[in-house]
């Protein structure tokens, strides 16, 4: 009885001396994986052929193909997008839709969530800060995201 309470205590106590697993978030951020599906981006407006397939396949109707100057191009409602990737998969043009690794997508204004084509073709702004990646797990069962 007593040992079964003391042993977990001692096991938990060992963790006091280990390095932390969490990251001090706004100052340090984890680098997303290579395939990370963040905000959508149009590689270039000219790359889009205006076929409208992305709008057809989108399950949440987040994409609407609108008239942009002389051509048609997609506009995105981020409030609806669920990052499922169906639009990127179906897009026939290699120069049009793609994912970026941006995941801090809050806006103060609902209107700003709607990305018109020109804004969709801008790469997301990256604030200057430190990226860390999962480090090795060493023999002493330590796992950490770096210092």
């Amino acid at each position: 009885m007593v040992t079964s309470i003391l042993r977990p205590l001692s096991m938990a106590f060992q963790h006091v001396f280990r390095r932390t697993f969490t990251v001090k978030y706004p100052f340090k951020v984890l680098k997303p994986a290579e395939r990370y599906r963040g905000r959508l981006m149009l590689r270039s407006i000219d790359g889009c052929i205006g076929c409208g397939l992305c709008s057809w396949v989108c399950p949440t109707k987040a994409i609407l193909v609108v008239q942009e100057a002389e051509r048609k191009a997609p506009s995105l409602d981020l409030g609806r997008c669920c990052m499922c990737g169906l639009c990127v998969e179906i897009c026939p043009s290699p120069l049009a839709l793609t994912f970026t690794s941006a995941y801090e997508l809050c806006e103060y204004d609902k209107e700003r969530l709607i990305y018109q084509p020109w804004r969709l073709s801008q790469p997301p702004a990256e604030p200057p800060r430190e990226y860390v990646r999962v480090k090795d797990i060493d023999e002493k069962r330590l796992i950490s995201h770096g210092r």
Partner: peptide, 22 residues
């Protein structure tokens, strides 16, 4: 939660998403 994170990392490697993979 710590160990679940590892598996979510693996999912992120394969699919690019952590919870809803599609």
């Amino acid at each position: 939660m710590n160990e679940r994170e590892l598996f979510l990392d693996l999912f992120e490697m394969i699919t690019g998403a952590r919870i809803t993979y599609s």
